[in-house]
């Protein structure tokens, strides 16, 4: 399945789960800031993705919570440290960290939860489960 095909299905799911208009959903949309997702919506989205794509999606895989657990090696004065950035990249390999690195404020982490993150995650999962030709 191509990126665009997965995106179209994800967009339909978000329209249903978040009660938004199709044109509001782009790959760059942030689930919280742009699409007004609340915490329970993340569970709703995971349930719907599992059904649509026939996958089991551990929530921590896609939408990890408390990544740093207050560890001072990872966060200092509200800023994510270099070690924290490495941890973030490890926990969220499908997130685009480029703009976050420019201003790694802890409270900006939620902006990493974008539609693109979901699509890239699914792309990787689907590629891993596709029959080898």
């Amino acid at each position: 399945m191509t990126y665009d095909e997965i995106f179209a299905k994800v967009r339909s799911i978000l329209v249903e789960a978040l009660n938004v208009e199709e044109q509001e959903v782009s790959p760059h949309s942030r689930l919280k800031a742009d699409l007004n997702a609340e915490s329970i919506d993340f569970l709703d989205i995971v349930f719907r993705l599992e059904k649509q794509f026939g996958l089991r999606i551990p929530r921590e895989d896609l939408f990890p919570e408390s990544i740093f657990q207050g560890d001072p090696r990872f966060v200092s004065n509200g800023q994510v440290t270099a070690e924290g950035l490495a941890e973030l990249q490890r926990r969220m390999p499908y997130a685009d960290l480029s703009s976050f690195r420019e201003n790694p404020r802890l409270d900006r982490i939620e902006d990493l939860f974008t539609v693109d993150l979901i699509v890239r995650y699914l792309q990787s999962r689907l590629a891993a489960t596709a029959p080898q030709s």
Binding site: L43, D44, F47, E50, R59
Partner: peptide
């Protein structure tokens, strides 16, 4: 029941 896991259900 549509979905169920540790966190909740739909």
């Amino acid at each position: 029941l549509l979905d169920l896991n540790e966190a909740g259900a739909r």
